[in-house]
């Protein structure tokens, strides 16, 4: 007890003393700074002019800002990326609707995307599509096996495949097109970002379609594939036609046809891989159409008993492990 009181006494004493010292210190520091400012003003001329230059620069920046309206920030700052997310809800809906309604005379790029292409829409459209495909793929799988004597199990890893296919499509195709336009020295100045944006939005139509794919009727699925691919594929073709138009006629038609075919192939790959049968074909990658052998295998597995199905799925699993 005694010691504790002693300590308290000491500390209180210290404080009062310290208070005194602090004030003293402050004064000395203040004095020092006074002296320092004085020496600063008597710097050589070259050094003295520097702040003036700075002022000129900032004034120049300001006038530039006034002229251009906005300055684009550096690549490494957060603000640089914020400009790609500068959309509001109405604009987003407008762009999504525009991406699936081809009209003879409207230019999607000019009328909807420019002057500020965004990445919000494309990114979240891709994310949504990954999960709607994986979820409805599982659901369709369940509905196909519901009545049968087959213990259904969900396959989480469809998410991985769907993500690889969709994000791959979203980035590889625009890169290829941009590279091609650059190589052919196209006169229309389409930036990479604009291509990326158009491609992202072109996937929007597959979201409702992928939900409708749950309906377990094969011909309906194929009709939906055709409808979706034609609607959004035409918008894509319309967008990129002016860019390749001045080129050699054959090349132009080939490029546009390839854009359309890849767009349709993505949808076809989804149906074949995710919505086909409880034991999906082992060779069916999302991009490659399934060979006739695997489709017959699927048809068989639907009709034959559970044992066949389990062996097929075991096969599938082992090949997956081998991957």
């Amino acid at each position: 007890m005694d010691i504790a009181i002693d300590v308290d006494d000491r500390s209180s004493k210290k404080k009062s003393e310290l208070g005194f010292y602090e004030a003293d210190n402050d004064e000395t520091i203040f004095d020092k700074s006074k002296v320092q400012t004085h020496t600063f003003t008597s710097f050589p001329e070259g050094a003295e002019y520097e702040p003036q230059d700075d002022e000129d620069e900032t004034e120049g920046d300001k006038s530039q800002l006034l002229e251009e309206g906005k300055k684009s920030p550096s690549f490494w700052t957060f603000e640089y990326y914020q400009q790609f997310f500068d959309v509001d809800t109405n604009q987003l809906l407008y762009r999504i609707v525009g991406s699936m309604t081809p009209r003879p005379n409207s230019k999607y790029l000019k009328g909807y995307i420019r002057p500020n292409p965004d990445l919000y829409g494309p990114f979240w459209i891709c994310c949504t599509l990954v999960f709607t495909t994986a979820i409805t793929g599982n659901l369709a799988n369940y509905l196909q096996t519901a009545g049968k004597d087959y213990k259904w199990k969900y396959d989480f890893h469809k998410v991985t495949y769907a993500a690889a296919a969709i994000f791959g499509y979203w980035w590889v195709l625009p890169t290829a097109i941009f590279g091609l336009l650059w190589w052919r020295k196209s006169q229309t100045a389409i930036t990479f970002l604009e291509i990326l944006c158009v491609y992202g939005y072109s996937l929007a139509i597959y979201i409702p379609i992928s939900i409708l794919w749950v309906i377990n009727v094969m011909w309906l699925r194929w009709i939906l594939v055709v409808v979706a691919a034609v609607l959004s594929g035409l918008v894509l073709v319309q967008t990129f036609w002016p860019a390749v138009n001045e080129d050699n006629r054959k090349v132009a038609i080939a490029v546009v046809a390839l854009i359309f075919v890849f767009h349709a192939l993505l949808a076809a790959g989804f149906v074949l891989y995710f919505f086909h049968s409880p034991a999906p074909a082992t060779t069916a990658a999302p991009f490659i159409p399934v060979s006739p052998v695997t489709t017959t295998q699927n048809a068989l597995s639907e009709s034959i008993k559970q044992t066949v199905i389990t062996t097929a799925s075991a096969n599938h699993n082992t090949t997956k492990a081998a991957f």
Binding site: V87, D88, T89, N90, W124, T128, I135, K153, Y154, F156
Partner: peptide, 25 residues
């Protein structure tokens, strides 16, 4: 103007987790 745009990803995030929960059989 951006409330919906901010809420949608949150919705998607919880939707995915809900799907994981309901699919766990």
């Amino acid at each position: 103007g951006k409330k919906v745009l901010a809420v949608y990803p949150i919705f998607l995030f919880y939707f995915i987790i809900s799907w994981l929960v309901i699919s766990h059989t």
